[in-house]
């Protein structure tokens, strides 16, 4: 079993440099799947978060709501609108918790090719499509081995 500290050396885990193929990739938000949006909102508000845009995503049959904070990463609350769908399944199996992390990128296809070039094993879960919560910007989801669900959000 791998121990803490095993794996890539420190120098290999530094952030993207000028010549890094991931130089356009920046952290955007993490999403929390919840079965009680009111309770989750109360938690975020208590920490000083303010409520942002919200939307209904018919593809996943979920409600989405962004929360912003002056000094902490944005949080997207995701909660089911019905009784079926992947978020319902996750909530039943794992309870409330982090659902995905989102990175903003210049170009989705180019970023995906860069991930492939790094020999990372991942699966496209949702094909690129307009994001209902982000003004129709392109968005896609990928499941990464060893990490979990990742959202890529195009800048334009």
């Amino acid at each position: 079993m791998m121990r803490p500290g095993d794996g890539p050396a420190q120098g290999e885990t530094d952030g993207p440099g000028e010549d890094s193929p991931f130089r356009s990739l920046t952290f955007h938000h993490f999403a929390v799947a919840t079965d009680d949006a009111k309770l989750s909102s109360e938690y975020l508000a208590a920490l000083g978060y303010r409520r942002g845009a919200n939307a209904y995503d018919p593809l996943q049959n979920v409600n989405l709501e962004m929360w912003h904070h002056a000094g902490m990463p944005d949080v997207e609350l995701v909660w089911p609108s019905g009784t079926s769908g992947p978020v319902n399944t996750m909530l039943k199996k794992k309870g409330v918790g982090i659902y995905h992390v989102c990175y903003e990128v210049d170009d989705l296809a180019e970023t995906v090719e860069t991930f492939r070039a790094k020999d990372l094993n991942f699966l496209e879960v949702v094909e690129p499509r307009p994001a209902v919560l982000f003004g129709g910007r392109p968005v896609a989801f990928y499941l990464f081995e060893g990490f979990g669900l990742v959202e890529l959000l195009g800048r334009a």
């Binding site: 769908g85 992947p86 399944t89 996750m90 199996k93 094993n121 991942f122 699966l123 496209e124 879960v125 949702v126 094909e127 896609a140 989801f141 499941l143 081995e145």
Partner: peptide, 21 residues
């Protein structure tokens, strides 16, 4: 639905193929 994507990720790796969503 959750285990299905995990299954497909494993299949993709084991057989060396890519799947679209």
């Amino acid at each position: 639905s959750l285990s299905h994507v995990r299954l497909m990720l494993e299949v993709s790796k084991a057989f060396g193929v890519r799947f679209s969503a």
